[in-house]
Design a protein around this nucleic acid. Structure first.
Lengths: 134, 134
DNA sequence: TATTGTTATACTCTATAACTATA
DNA sequence: TATAGTTATAGAGTATAACAATA
C-alpha cells in the first residue's frame, strides 16, 4: 500500500507538474491557489494548515505567488500580526486556466476509469486522508 | 486528486516510517526488501526499475542494507558488470518482522475500511499506477 | 506569554553527469 | 559503442529554530 501510494503520488505529480509548466506554476502553487479560490481570503497560517505544510514553507510559496502578481498580502486590521492573502484578478484568471489543465490531466491520470470508479477512488482517499476541505 | 494523493502518501509514509524506526529501516529500505523477498535475487538495475527510482539512488540504498547485514552484493559470473543482490538470513528475518509491522500499520492507515473497500482501493491504485509487480 | 510571519539553515529523498569496468 | 554500477554534486520539497512584531 505504501509503495502504491508513493507511485500514485509520483505519477500524478509528474503529469500535473509538466502540464502546469506553461503557467509557471509548481503543483504546490496550484494547491494554494485552489484553496484560496474555494475558501476565499486566508491567513498564511490557515493556508499552511489546509495544505498540511509548514508556515516557513508557506512564506516562500506566498512570495512566489506575489512575485507573479497572483495574490496580495495585506495586514489584517483585526490582527496586525496576520496577513490576509487574497487572489488578484490575474490570480483568479490563472487559477481558472490551471483548473482547465488539471481537468485534462485528470483524464490522463484516470484514463480507463469509469465515472463511478473515479468517485469511488476519490471517496476512499478522502476517508484515508481525513481531508474535508473540498 | 493531486492533493489527495499527496496527503495520502504523506500520511502513509509518516505512519510506516515511525513504525519501522525500531528496525532501523526507512520506508524505501523496506520497499527494496519487499521486492527482493517476492522476486528473489535481482541486479541493482532491476531493483531500481521495480522501485521506480534511479540507479545512483539504488547504490546508496544497497550500501545501507549491506551495512546492516541484510543483503549481499556479488558479482554475477554471467555478466561481471552486474551485481546480484541477495537477501541474507538476517535480511529475511528482518523483512518478516517489517511485514508484520506493515500489516499492523495497514490497519491504522485503513481504520474503518471494510475488506471490500481495501481491495477496491488497492485495485484502483494498481490500475492508476500500472504497477504489476506484486 | 503566546502567536503570525520571517529568516537562516538543514534535512530527506531523488536525479544528473562524469567516471570505471566490463560487455 | 553500450551498459552496470559508482561517485560527486545538485535539486526539489519540506522542516526546525531563533527572531521581530503584535496580541
Amino acid at each position: 500500500m505504501g509503495m502504491l501510494l508513493r507511485l500514485a503520488h509520483l505519477r500524478a505529480r509528474e503529469i500535473f507538474a509538466e502540464a502546469l509548466r506553461p503557467l509557471d506554476l509548481r503543483t504546490y502553487h496550484y494547491g494554494a491557489l485552489l484553496v484560496l479560490a474555494r475558501k476565499g481570503p486566508c491567513t498564511q497560517r490557515e493556508l499552511a494548515a489546509a495544505l498540511a505544510t509548514d508556515k516557513s514553507t508557506m512564506v516562500r510559496m506566498i512570495d512566489d505567488l506575489e512575485d507573479r502578481g497572483l495574490i496580495t498580502r495585506a495586514r489584517m486590521p483585526s490582527d496586525r500580526r496576520a496577513h490576509a492573502i487574497t487572489l488578484t484578478d490575474r490570480g483568479r484568471e490563472v487559477t481558472a486556466r490551471a483548473d482547465a489543465i488539471a481537468e485534462t490531466m485528470h483524464d490522463v491520470l484516470l484514463a480507463g476509469f469509469t465515472d463511478d470508479e473515479r468517485r469511488t477512488l476519490r471517496d476512499l482517499l478522502v476517508r484515508l486522508t481525513r481531508y474535508d476541505a473540498f
